[in-house]
Design a protein around this nucleic acid. Structure first.
Lengths: 349, 349
DNA sequence: CTGAAAGCGCTTACAG
DNA sequence: CTGAAAGCGCTTACAG
């Protein structure tokens, strides 16, 4: 009824105990008789007491929040649907545990590192998610220096002291290449992502490995920064080259959609003249024409598991690495036998 | 040098003043001689003192953070590139003012309201952004009840006590309709967004108004939830109807891209048989084939201005509404005269 | 099993 | 213009 929010002192006096005991009851500490504890909690509930977050933060040096720093250039940020889904997964875990997500979006590496420093220095978060891992990633040393608990998405290149949650994307790329080969393709190109990023580089290697395993030339690769515009550009260069591919494996869906646009603009039929595969199985990839064969993962689940892992790491100081189910090839309409191979037996398999 | 982070007491004793004076100097309060102030600040800098956020929060009841609650169903969340860009704009302002962004993603209206309550009850944020405004939006009463400063994106339907930052999208829709009419189209359909949402409803009205102004039938409208799948579905229904349109105005780009897919799947040529316009001018819309005529706004700038407005509102209790430059029609390749009107004079204008 | 008290690191009247 | 002290609302040894 009073305008003032009730504090722990109000609860203590209403329950006829000391503030300390209320705190113990709240935090499930031992040393409180069961019925005393229940009485205290009932009184707290009656009064509508919500323990003050800032008071708890000050005495426990805990912020009850987790941090996510996204480093993306303005041009790339909108096209990638990974983060919204990932964040939805993270949120589903945090909300039920009374934690909040602090999000930063930064344009470059310097701002990224500065942001982690500020987050840690302000005690703004209790731990951070590390996404878009890079080779020789400076964040690994930084979070250690800062003593900031962390969880990485993907398999770090070097040994690190924090847990990671990985989702194998190599088998998906391999499956895509094998699928194309089984359709009769032999000249297959790859529009790769940013080679600085571990997952960009690894998808590229998986492509090369799969081609090599089939005795084919896997050097038809163009690197990009994962952006739509570079995806379109890479497609043009591939098609203009001396050995134009009959199929292209893209490192993400937005680039594949841009590649589809380039092909169509040139009057090439997809998949008749050119087969195309994407990566991520985004919503929209099912609705372009032809519907995109893609490699699907589950970013929402990735978010959930990463959040749980980070929370464990913070609470106990240790958490085990998790391997999520690998990304799966989802065959839709953008892949078919190459035109001059249409009657090839392998196409009938 | 010490492992312990310096506190205000360390700064005070090092500078030979009281803690109170350090606080006054830090917060630019009057009553500190200029050279004393400079000396204190220099000492603080020397010691590498970072005022504790939680201590400040506890005494000032300020969190130095802003909240954004995004209510989206899982299916829609990934496809809409608005939020990543908007957030990047918000961040650019917050980071330079030492504020953080607390982000929540919730699946439905009940969770949305509960989240605002928690954010306010925990004093987790000093104010909130209100996006995706609805008619008779329950959040308007809620933020008032909670005493939570807010800024709305778009023009609220009712009178509200907080400022809003709007971006006119009606003139863009009108320009699109007029553009299509000038090309010779008379049967124009509209794949509308969620009618519950103010911007969804308003785009629909703008469409109807523009058609009416030209003496055309503006009833060829199908409502959706803004999702890609419903966009595709609405397109099919429009094309299957008794008066199949020769042009369709979509309420967002992802639906327009899905509509393009549907048209192509049916063997319709775009823009030959069907002209299409999108909304938002997303990156990818320039790379599909044919490149999408769309209506472009500037979500990054929207984020910047909204953040500044909310910060003003929090600091001073008032802030003026802002009208951003209206969304602009960007004509690309997905619009052309209808085939049987190709020789119509209006097409040559 | 319970209580009284100090402490977390700031801010802010209040007195000089 | 400056200092000493109380207060924000919790948690946590410490003593019983």
């Amino acid at each position: 009824m009073s305008a003032r929010k009730p504090t722990i002192a109000d609860v203590a006096s209403a329950a006829g105990v000391s503030k300390g005991l209320v705190s113990f009851a709240l935090n499930d500490k031992p040393g409180v008789a069961a019925d005393t504890r229940n009485r205290i909690l009932a009184v707290a509930d009656d009064l509508g007491w919500r323990p003050s977050l800032s008071a708890r933060s000050l005495s426990t040096r805990t912020s009850f929040a987790l941090g996510l720093v996204i480093r993306r250039e303005a041009e790339v940020i909108g096209a990638d649907p990974f983060f919204p889904s990932f964040i939805a997964g993270v949120e589903s875990v945090l909300s039920e545990r009374g934690r909040a997500l602090v999000l930063s979006v930064v344009p470059d590496g310097a701002a990224e590192l500065a942001t982690y420093r500020t987050l840690a220095g302000d005690n703004r978060v209790d731990g951070v998610f590390l996404t878009d891992l890079r080779h020789s990633d400076q964040r690994f040393a930084l979070v250690e220096e800062l003593g900031l608990p962390a969880v990485a998405l993907g398999h770090p290149a070097s040994n690190v002291k924090f847990p990671f949650v990985e989702l194998d994307d190599t088998s998906g790329i391999q499956a895509a290449v094998e699928h194309l080969i089984s359709l009769g393709h032999t000249r297959i190109g790859h529009v790769a992502g940013d080679p600085e990023m571990i997952h960009g580089g690894r998808r590229r290697e998986s492509f090369a490995d799969a081609m090599r395993a089939a005795g084919l030339d896997g050097s038809l690769v163009i690197e990009t920064d994962f952006s739509v515009s570079q995806g379109a550009d890479a497609t043009r260069r591939l098609l203009d080259g001396p050995h134009a591919p009959t199929a292209i494996v893209y490192a993400n869906d937005p680039m594949a959609i841009a590649g589809l646009g380039v092909a169509q603009q040139r009057g090439l039929s997809v998949p008749g003249d050119l087969s195309i595969t994407g990566f991520d199985g985004t919503d929209i990839s099912a609705y372009v024409f032809p519907a995109l064969t893609s490699i699907t993962s589950d970013p929402v689940e990735w978010g959930r598991v990463a959040a749980r892992t980070l929370l464990d790491q913070i609470a106990t100081g240790v958490a085990s690495n998790v391997a999520l189910p690998p990304a799966q090839l989802l065959v839709r309409a953008s892949t078919a036998p190459p035109r001059h191979h249409a009657e090839h037996p392998s196409a009938l398999r």
